[in-house]
Design a protein around this nucleic acid. Structure first.
Lengths: 241, 241
DNA sequence: TTATAAAATTGACATTTATCAATGTTTTAT
DNA sequence: ATAAAACATTGATAAATGTCAATTTTATAA
């Protein structure tokens, strides 16, 4: 359930890919490490490749690693009773995954699954803890990173509980454009079911809202390719709930 | 909007109340501080008293302090568009509040409001940051604490998005008994509206579910006093969604 | 204590959202 | 190229939840 295919000790990482591993447009949390500390990290790091659909981290397994995404797109979701899924977040290139609970009971709170092919690095939590105690700047950066990710998910969920479906879909479309793909016609690579799972509604309901937006000329949709035509309308819909 | 009444530099804290400030049944995060570090904390600490209903921390204000609750009950909630409130968590004696975003943009993500009278200590974030860089054990403890609180709120919200109303109410009643009041007939001191705000539903809907539980002899209700009669039934309801 | 306000409850009804089944479309494997 | 599977769409309908208004109960202040 943990790293399916542990490949070689990350050869390519000798070039210190960690130093380029950004998150959320923030400064790299590994930048504050000394050369020795970085060596420690790189030495133990494992490079793993996942095909689309494979599970990277599984909810309720023990949290022994953190994962850095080198390339690709993955989804973080909570598995509820009876096949219920709620996608909490998408993570793309240069993101860092803690799986929810590295710092709590050492049990993963969420599942992470590859949406596209994903190339990533597995780092033992132990190493991270070691660095936290050695380097306080690193500790602080990690605290910030962790908090930022959680807050984003919380705010997203608050929206889901407070807004009607059109508002939720509007928020999602804007989020995908602004935060994940950062381009306007964007190709989600996500199924309708997955998009619906990001908004806490059924696929059928999601499709209906999308259809309404299409016929109101707010967006254009071609398969998994979405083009926002009237961003202001979406913003208003999102505000209104 | 910040500390309404800053009283004297916390006289009573000379007895190192911090060393008794537990959270969530976990070990005290201040325990790992040296005597000097604790002095630093206590010297700058302010003791503040709030009446029921007063706002302790306000969403969207700048996050200059963390707060430790010495006694009383407070609610953490997200304020949405148009008076919409969602109570994310209750915090009782010996809890530590970060207000959501001390480590992120320094803006509070949530509002914290006193439910009963609340006695608490305000500590500058700067002092906390200073301690994080001085003491790595403290950094790690804080990381854990912060993460645990966020995960709890996330899991709660996931439940709200995935379950029908009876399941949500069942979860809430069990949560109040097990985590907050730790006794069986318990007095919530919360209005129906507040209880409803913890489940993301309207007050009227909440009351109806409560009534159903009452007529099924699952609970007994007397004002804000709730007695769980058939805990198993609630557990099943919570699982089923 | 009484008047007044606030909170809780109930009912009727409207709206939102999910469910189920049928059909069309695209992708995948032979 | 064709069959099979997976995915997407649509419609009809049922269930869940919210809204609004009226009423009762409880708390509060003069």
């Amino acid at each position: 359930m943990e790293p399916r295919i542990i490949e070689e000790a990350c050869a390519r990482c000798k070039d210190h890919c960690c130093t380029r591993c950004l998150n959320d447009g923030e400064l790299n949390i590994f930048n504050c490490l000394t050369k020795e500390e970085l060596e420690l990290l790189v030495k133990e790091k494992r490079h793993v490749h996942f095909k689309a659909g494979e599970t990277i981290l599984k909810q309720n397994t023990s949290a022994s690693h953190i994962v850095c995404i080198r390339s690709g797109l993955a989804k973080i979701f909570a598995e509820g009773e009876g096949d219920k899924k709620l996608i909490l977040n998408l993570v793309a290139t240069h993101s860092i995954l803690t799986g929810g609970g590295i710092f709590m009971d050492e049990i993963r709170q969420f599942t992470v699954q590859a949406v596209t092919e994903v190339d990533c690095c597995f780092i033992y939590s132990d190493k991270i803890f070691e660095l936290v105690s050695k380097n306080s700047t690193f500790a602080f950066q990690l605290l910030k990173l962790n908090n930022r990710q959680n807050i984003r998910m919380l705010n997203n969920l608050v929206g889901i509980t407070q807004k009607y479906m059109p508002g939720r879909v509007a928020d999602l479309l804007l989020y995908l454009k602004n935060e994940i793909f950062q381009s306007n016609p964007y190709d989600t690579r996500l199924s309708r079911q997955e998009l619906a799972d990001m908004t806490g509604m059924t696929m059928e309901s999601f499709i209906r809202i999308l259809k309404e937006f299409k016929s109101s000329a707010i967006i254009a949709v071609e398969g998994s390719n979405i083009h926002i035509l009237d961003e202001d309308a979406l913003i208003i819909l999102g505000k209104k709930g």
